[in-house]
Amino acid sequence: EDCSDATAILALQGPKAKDVLTSVLGEGAHVGRFRWSPLEGSALSISGYIQGTGYTGEAGYEILVPNDDAAPLWRALIAEGATPVGLGARDTLRLEKGFLLSGVDFLWPSLASSEDDGFLARDSWESNVPFGWGFEHDHPGAAKMRSHQDGDARWWGVRYLEKGPLPRPGKPVTSMDGAPLGQLTSGAPAPSLDNAGIGIGYLAGVSEGDEVLVQASPRKAVKAVVVRPPFV
């Protein structure tokens, strides 16, 4: 049975997530990282599931409950000290951690070459994401990964070295003498780095520590350094 339309999900994230959770739903609601458990006998008599996951780089939980239970749970979490935030906050946190976002940093048709359907426009080889797949045996996507094995474009991070317009998706990255290197797929100010601009993207011909230019606006190229995420 598909219960998607009848189910709400609340993400409780941050260093105080466990304290807030146990205050609202009791000690039995806690689950470890990447673990899950049904919500049974909770202090609010709420049913559903809880899992030790999230996409902020922080410790925390994702809580799945029937729609009718979402508002009471929301109010209870806020009463215990949780602060509502939007997707912009989630995006800066996941970017500081170097997490790729589906539909933005991969599985994005505009990243695909002309002969590609865009479904895996950037595969795990290019993204430096170790899924444990080797090249010595066949598996779904193996041929595509092998075709990129000798390619130069790889996933890198850049961190601003000076002030300027913020890095944004699609902004070109060049060498210091203007040679094209690639483009950013994500970018934002980093609150943990005094709001310095950070971004991730697919760059060719670079190494960690190289200085590059982010073409952040038609009139301003901002000096940045190539880094291997996470940024913090």
Rank of each mutant, 00 (worst) to 15 (best):
E1T: 12
D2F: 12
S4D: 13
A8C: 13
I9G: 02
A11S: 15
L12Q: 06
G14Q: 00
K18W: 07
L21A: 03
L21T: 00
T22N: 00
S23L: 00
G26W: 06
A29H: 05
R33I: 10
R35H: 15
R35T: 06
W36G: 12
S37G: 04
P38M: 07
A43F: 00
S45F: 03
I46Q: 03
Q51I: 09
Q51W: 07
G60D: 09
V65C: 09
P66Q: 11
P66A: 12
A70N: 02
A71C: 03
L73M: 04
A76T: 05
L77G: 02
I78C: 15
E80A: 14
A82C: 07
D91P: 02
T92L: 11
G98T: 10
L101V: 13
S102E: 13
V104G: 03
W108G: 00
E115K: 10
D116C: 01
D117C: 09
G118R: 05
G118E: 04
F119Q: 12
L120V: 11
L120S: 10
S124F: 13
S124G: 00
S124I: 10
E126Y: 02
E126R: 08
W133Y: 15
P140K: 06
A142C: 13
A143S: 14
K144S: 12
M145E: 13
Q149N: 08
G151A: 10
G157S: 03
R159C: 09
Y160W: 11
K163G: 15
G164I: 00
L166I: 11
L166A: 12
R168T: 12
S175E: 08
S175I: 05
M176A: 03
M176N: 00
G178R: 05
P189E: 03
P191F: 07
D194N: 14
G201F: 00
Y202V: 04
G205E: 08
G209Y: 04
V212P: 02
L213H: 04
V214W: 03
Q215W: 07
P218V: 04
V222T: 13
A224F: 07
V225R: 14
V225W: 05
R228P: 01
R228K: 14
